[in-house]
Write a protein that binds this DNA or RNA. Structure first.
Lengths: 372, 372
DNA sequence: GGTCTTGCCGAAAAGGTTTTCGTGGGCGAG
DNA sequence: CTCGCCCACGAAAACCTTTTCGGCAAGACC
């Protein structure tokens, strides 16, 4: 076994191969030397190529273990032209959903063998997304997932991505780009129908910000459900997902004695609405029923516990990764431009009930009996 | 300009250098050729080395722009032995704090020129942390930040990190590892003192899980404040940060008519407590005052709005990055094993007030007048 | 006028892996 | 016996950048 570079030999000898004390510092050649094979054979073993004799494989494996060999991802990336990492553009928000999706994506990516790099954007404007995408590209990610952006941003993403695979999840989609989303229309319809079925003559709606497609779709679902039931369609009360605007709109709703049912586009909005109603002395659900959207765990402990439409954020995250992986797969011929729609589910808790006048009397508030 | 490999020349010609149509695909040699210099000079320009004539620099810069050159991070990492990325181990929780920290860290890292890679752990056990750290090391990150782990995990982290720089933030620390944290003791003292100052004879405490140091420290601060005031120290009611356990403990508190003040180790616990008190017919703050810990935005809309101890999670994230960067800096000689303590701040809202018997009568609940 | 610095730049090596090509032995088929 | 195939493995090229070394001018100094 002859090495050309004495320096390299010396180095290899007095760490990895020699003393074996520092971890992850030995290279392929060290392993090869120890196993008495060439480094190409080590490579073959690592990458599971056929045509390597079983006892050789065992020797190599043993050498790798003994030297605590870890392959150098940079060298690997250089030659394969694949970085093995995916980029996530995350929206910096205290919202419950985006976070859950981030972790779900990472978990799924890891089990698919991909690293995940994040770039956060503080504001959902075009420039931020472009910057973040650029930053990620500089790391030569193989694909991009943008979490919960507005549709204008999806456009920006499509532009920034260039020939890179890209997916949006949970927010603004655009025709140019694949996306995984909740079926917001169905979810809103579910919530609205639930309230109508309870006997309310109509349902008011506190919406999300009007430049979010999710907000718009929830408005649509709500409106369709009302129309289908022949119920009057009140004016939308615009919010911005936050408890604060929920509170403001809640005050207006509380002032109107005709209001008996409210569907909020997010649980946080509902939190604000509940507070406003409470402070105005309107009881929930006796006087007014409230339904939220998101199904956050906290909702179970609002006053009263909130009926809500649950989104499975984790599943959404996994789906978006699936979409991205499909685009990355060279076997997949069709240019994947799919939209993956996930149907949400209604969780019934105490904040929604039949209106007081309808005969069916409410059972009194019994603490734990109805907690879902 | 002679190239040894005809194949390489052809390839370079019909993309980057030639047509210039595909983005980010040209390499240094293309730029060098276009600028009429050698690739080493291009390297010098990029890395800001001195001794390059100004007009040469301009030519190179122009060529880079025209070719939309992006340097290959893999090749760079290979030769510099630096990946330029940091690893974050994130705890998969719907908690407000960890998320804010994650994004804050990423933002700060990006402006320091580092990429950020995440690995999430679903459960806070030793094995998960080891796995996550290992996964990150395989990507050859230069440093590790673990968000909000338990102390046992900090130990695991220290082990997993090996000679890698590592920091924990917002959670379990250990002597082996630097960490940025909230001063929980002071925060808890603040909350307790606030309640005592309002006239309560003592303060009850619903704690976090007992294997979290933050929970333990908050207990300590609470206890010290009580002792300092000569107030009796009731038994701790253990929780796990969640609204659910807050609710359970709240039911117990509600059953005891002597309880007039409760300090909860998290806002979510407080949410559950508030609900339990409400359902038991105990008014907040007339009968019982409640203070939380975290200062989540939602707390402002609880019923009633929650007095809480606000942690500046973003700042915490930035500090942890600072600690890590200090370890990475070769100029820094001292083995940095610091603990960075951040003092939290009390936000006073309506959920805490003087006890009813103390003379100072409460102003009636006026909706928006007291919102902080 | 020769030696020394200083500014500018090119040639070549190094970094660790995968890929392509090649080689030799064993073995079944003609 | 020879042709050709398959198996197991090694040699070398390629990936793209940074770093080290060295060359070459122009001016400063003795």
């Amino acid at each position: 076994m002859i090495e050309r570079s004495g320096g390299a030999r010396a180095r290899a000898a007095n760490r990895g191969a020699g003393t074996g004390r520092s971890t992850g510092r030995s290279i392929m050649r060290d392993v090869a030397a120890r196993a008495g094979v060439s480094s190409q054979t080590v490579s073959r073993v690592i990458n599971g190529h056929p045509y390597v004799a079983d006892d050789t494989r065992q020797r190599v494996l043993a050498a790798m273990r003994e030297l605590d060999y870890q392959r150098n991802p940079a060298a690997r990336a250089l030659v394969t032209r694949r970085s093995g990492t995916l980029g996530i553009i995350g929206y910096e928000s205290p919202l419950y959903g985006p976070t859950s999706m981030l972790y779900a994506i990472e978990g799924a990516a890891r089990s698919a063998g991909y690293f995940v790099s994040v770039a956060s954007v503080r504001h959902l404007d075009r420039r931020s997304v472009l910057d973040a995408a650029d930053w990620l590209r500089r790391q030569s990610v193989e694909g991009l997932i943008a979490i919960a952006p507005k549709p204008a941003m999806a456009g920006a993403l499509a532009e920034a991505a260039g020939e890179l695979a890209a997916v949006t999840v949970g927010g603004g989609c655009s025709d140019e780009i694949a996306s995984a989303q909740i079926d917001n229309v169905t979810g809103a319809r579910l919530a609205t129908r639930h309230l109508l079925d309870l006997g309310h003559t109509t349902v008011h709606h506190v919406s999300g910000p009007d430049d979010w497609p999710e907000a718009e779709e929830r408005i649509r679902g709500w409106r369709e459900a009302l129309r289908a039931a022949g119920a009057p369609v009140p004016a939308v009360l615009p919010g911005d997902w936050s408890a604060s605007t929920g509170y403001q709109q809640g005050e207006r709703l509380a002032a109107d004695p005709d209001v008996t049912a409210v569907f909020c586009a997010s649980d946080q909005l509902a939190l604000g609405v509940l507070r406003a109603l409470h402070e105005a002395g309107r009881r929930v659900p006796e006087d007014v029923s409230v339904v939220g959207f998101d199904g956050t765990p906290d909702g179970a402990h609002f006053l009263p516990p909130l009926t809500s439409v649950r989104q499975d954020f984790a599943e959404l995250g996994r789906r978006s990764l699936g979409l991205l992986l499909a685009q990355l797969d060279p076997a997949e011929q069709t240019p994947v431009r799919r939209r993956d729609l996930l149907v949400p589910e209604l969780i019934s808790r105490r904040s929604a009930a039949a209106p007081c006048g309808t005969g069916r009397p409410l059972r009194a508030l019994r603490p734990a009996s109805l907690i879902g």
